[in-house]
Amino acid sequence: MICDECGRPATIRFVETVNGEMRLMRLCGECAAARGIGLSFAPLAGPLVNMLMGFLEEVGAQDSVEVPEPACSECGLPYDEFRRTGKLGCAVCYTSFEKELRPLIRRINGSTRHTGRIPTSAPDDVESIREVRRLKVDLERAVRGEEYERAAELRDRIRDLESKRSEGGDDGDV
């Protein structure tokens, strides 16, 4: 069983009801947690930042392998300040604090890869990213229309394109 979100081994199976339609989902523990499955959410919980900060505390508490970079190499933002305010100082902070940010962003979004709009000035990769985006919209439609064979086909094409992208790109989704 493979996670529908990230393609890693899935451990949780559940049925999601959207608009009265049932849909079977398979997720790994992390993606399930990111979607709030198995967690209880207060309906009017405080700002997202609280959740985010709580999570950062958790990560901090593990205190396992590496001590976080003390500050951003570009703008000098101390990591502690980000923990306090929830705000980053500049674009390079995303690289400086990548190890800390990646699990956090996955937890919020269930993903760590942008599949949306691309600036017109962005050079490479653009076409394959756009293609994936189109395919995902088609996939959604296929699932809603209960065309499962077509949905499976589309899913495979999306995975294919996405794996090609990550091979050429960074260190991937770990």
Partner: peptide, 25 residues
């Protein structure tokens, strides 16, 4: 606007924002 402004963007993370709860789109 993009014709005259260059945005902070990474192909992995998307549009980079001050708060990571907005990053991506």
């Amino acid at each position: 606007l993009e014709r005259n402004l260059h945005y902070s963007y990474s192909s992995d993370w998307g549009y980079l924002t001050s708060c990571p709860t907005n990053v991506g789109t």
